[in-house]
Structure formats: C-alpha cells, structure tokens
C-alpha cells in the first residue's frame, strides 16, 4: 500500500513538473448558443469552444472547461477556482477594475426583441412605458438602465437569457435586450418563431456595450500575453475564419 502511495506521489510530482497544471477555462453554466452550450451527452460545444481549442493548441497549453454560475464568474476567477473567463464577456471599464481582459475575439451588436407586431422600436422613444427584460449583470443591463430605465415602465432582471425569453413569450415583458447572436438563436427556435421578432440593434455606446468580447484573467496574470498572441496568430493564419464559417454567415470579429 505504502509503495503504491509513494509511486503515486512520485508520478504526481513528475507529472506536475513535466506538464503545467491545466488552465481552467470558466464558461457560464447556462447554455448560450451558439457560443457555449452542452450537447446531449453533456460535452460543451459551440463556436467559443472550438475557438478555445484552437487558441489552446496555438498557445500550447492544456485547457479544461469549468462550468461556473454566470453571476459568480468574476469572483470565481479572482478566488482561483478558474483561471480564465471565456463566456462571451464584454470588455468594460467597470469589469476591468477587477480583472484583466485579453484583446477582443468577437464583437456583435445588441438588439431588441419583442412580440410580433408590437410596433416597438429599438430606441428610448419606442420603449417608453414598456416592460423590458434583461439578463442581470450584463452590458445589456447597464445599457438598459442608462437609456431605457428612465422612460420604461419597469426593467426586470433575470438570471439567464432563457428566463427572459420565456417571459417575453409569455407576454410578461414587452421587450428584451440581448446579444444579436444569442437572440438570433432564440428567434430561430420553435418558441421564438412562434412569438417574437427582432426590431433592430440599439444605438452603439462603446463605453457601456464595451469593446467586444475578450478573455477575462486575474490582474497581472502572465497568461494574458500568451492568449493575445494566440488570438493574433489564429486570426492571421485563417483558423479563426475556418472556425466561424459553420456558425455564422458574417464576420463576427466586427470592425
């Protein structure tokens, strides 16, 4: 017994020496298609997962996906439960106070989705007196609070995208604001096709909506430079476009 233990200990010691600890990549535990969602057998799939595989290969690091609750994902990073946030997190000044961000790896506009034929437009005038649903602690919530909350009847916050979409379908909220790609996936679903339509993107505000989506890292983590180089490399060699093609019919990297 003792021998086995010793052997295990030795193997572990060697293992750590030869291979660095795998980098724990935190994704929000809720499905966020087409970026991150668990498939029927529980494996994480989506554009962001494919992208991560390419990045980790490029940077020659071992990565493991660690599902984490979205509303606690930054504390999970700062407390060391995960090493990198890869969860379609927009780069914002507010978040940058607590964590470091890599360069952006995609940037898509935010859009307003309403019930069919609602006549609502994607601006404060159109949303006056309406009930708006938005996912809590997102850039969309910050945007809604700044531009729509003063005129809207009520802003309701939800833990997940699914919940506010469900309440939109149930008619409890008049409009929801979300990322165009995630909302597009909802509108293509059976429930989304039955009830709802997109009424357009909101006016841009880089200060709130951020400069795109990046990896989140602990302050001063040297991994940051590695990831930035890897993003640059796979952008340059065409891997990025090859990954994106099956998912999107436009360039999600943005301007």
């Amino acid at each position: 017994m003792k021998k086995i233990l010793l052997a295990t200990a030795a193997a572990l010691a060697l293992g750590t020496a030869a291979l660095a600890e795998p980098v724990k990549i935190g994704v929000a535990a809720e499905p966020y298609p087409p970026f991150t969602s668990p498939d029927a057998s529980g494996n994480w799939v989506g554009w962001e997962v494919d992208f991560m595989v390419a990045i980790c290969k490029q940077a020659a690091i071992e990565c493991v996906i660690t599902p984490t609750a979205w509303d606690g994902i930054i504390p999970a990073l700062t407390s060391g439960q995960i090493d990198v946030i890869m969860s379609s997190m927009s780069i914002t000044a507010e978040r940058a106070k607590t964590i470091d961000f890599s360069d952006k790896y995609y940037n898509t506009p935010a859009m307003i989705v309403t019930a069919k034929g609602s006549g609502i437009t994607a601006d404060p005038a159109g949303l006056t007196g309406k009930i708006i649903g938005v996912q809590v602690a997102t850039t969309h919530e910050a945007y809604t609070q700044k531009y729509f909350a003063p005129v809207a009847a009520e802003v309701k916050t939800y833990q997940t995208l699914d919940e506010h979409n469900q309440d939109l379908a149930a008619g409890r909220v008049d409009a929801v604001m979300g990322d165009s790609i995630a909302m597009d996936a909802f509108l293509k679903s059976e429930a989304g096709m039955a009830c709802c339509e997109a009424v357009g993107a909101v006016a841009d505000d880089a200060e709130i909506l951020g400069a795109g989506v990046g990896f989140g890292l602990r302050k001063g983590d040297p991994l940051l430079a590695t990831l930035n180089e890897a993003i640059k490399a796979i952008r340059a060699d065409g891997t990025y476009d090859a990954i994106s093609k099956p998912y999107f019919d436009f360039d999600i990297y943005g301007k």
């Binding site: 509303d71 606690g72 930054i74 504390p75 700062t78 809590v136 602690a137 309701k156 916050t157 309440d167």
Partner: peptide, 17 residues
C-alpha cells in the same frame, strides 16, 4: 424576478463584485 431582500444582496454582488 421579485426584488426582495435576498435579490437585493445578489444585485449588489453582481454590480460591485
């Protein structure tokens, strides 16, 4: 979506980390 006491604490956590 009801903002009772617990939800308020959650909201502050999400706003301020």
């Amino acid at each position: 979506t009801i903002m009772e006491t617990y939800a308020v604490a959650g909201r502050i956590r999400q706003d301020t980390f």
